[in-house]
């Protein structure tokens, strides 16, 4: 019960902080749709090509969640270490990994307005071009897999932050690598086999994005995904990554306690 209350408190705190920084959210609601349109224009060599609008839209929505879950959580975690507030959260009986997962839930919810702005932009442009935005509730499963897998990545980055502090370059690099290797812009099927294999294996968003493409672009059912490694891997991969994230975070936290870096900057 204590863990549940702590988790809920962490989610609520994250949302309060998100509301306090509403200007930043507003800016993101403008810049992310612009980023989406620019990517389509770039890939379409100056044209908003209909065949690119929907695939890139799916990738950009996924990127929105990764951005919030990794960047927001990393910076807020680093800020809490710097200000010493993080140490206060350690003076409780809660496992700190549970609190990071609370931050992740808050970050995923915080990503919704921006994701919706991107979706609205995509819907408008696709409709104006005479196309239509397919809707299928099955897509929520891969979206949830993307969010869960990114939780695992965030746990690892938070653990590294506890020990090494200034690792923003690792964070930025991981988001960039995952954005590319995750198949957000170019499908994994179009990549060299070894890269596609590794992406499906370790990149938290890769199976989710492939599944979203299969469902919304190919019209396939969740139980019969034609690309990638199927529904089983779609569900197992984020769970495995999050499990690995918890284990690694605990190890790094143990190291931070030994070195005395929980609150030192």
């Amino acid at each position: 019960m204590t863990a549940a209350r702590g988790f809920a408190a962490e989610v609520r705190k994250g949302l309060l902080n998100f509301a306090a920084g509403w200007r930043e959210a507003l800016i993101q609601m403008i810049t992310f749709p612009l980023f989406y349109l620019l990517i389509v224009l770039f890939m379409g060599r100056g044209q908003l090509r209909a065949d690119l609008l929907l695939p890139v839209l799916l990738g950009t929505v996924a990127l929105t969640f990764i951005h919030e879950q990794v960047n927001r959580v990393f910076w807020s975690y680093l800020g809490d270490i710097q200000s010493g507030v993080l140490e206060q959260t350690y003076l409780t009986s809660l496992p700190s990994a549970a609190l990071i997962l609370g931050r992740q839930v808050a970050a995923a919810i915080s990503a919704l307005p921006t994701a919706l702005a991107v979706l609205a932009t995509g819907y408008t442009v696709i409709t104006l071009q005479g196309g239509h935005l397919p809707v299928d509730a099955q897509v929520l499963v891969p979206l949830a897999a993307i969010v869960l897998g990114t939780c695992g990545l965030a746990l690892i980055l938070c653990g590294l932050t506890l020990v090494f502090k200034r690792i923003e370059i690792v964070t930025q690099l991981s988001v960039a690598v995952y954005a590319i290797a995750g198949g957000t812009l170019v499908p994994l099927a179009a990549m060299p086999d070894p890269v596609a294999f590794l992406s499906r294996l370790v990149v938290p968003i890769a199976p989710g994005i492939e599944a979203m493409r299969d469902i919304l672009l190919g019209g396939h059912s969740l139980a019969a995904l034609p690309t990638g490694w199927g529904l089983g891997w779609l569900l197992a991969q984020p769970l495995l990554i999050t499990g690995a994230g918890v284990v690694l975070f605990n190890r790094l936290e143990h190291l931070a306690r030994r070195r005395g870096t929980l609150g030192r900057y």
Binding site: K13, L16, A20, G21, G84, V85, Q88, L91, T92, G263
Partner: peptide, 18 residues
Amino acid sequence: MAQFGAVLEGSRNVYWSL
């Protein structure tokens, strides 16, 4: 930890944004 509360020196201890 249930026995314990602390105000630590040199840190904010609480969230200034709240």
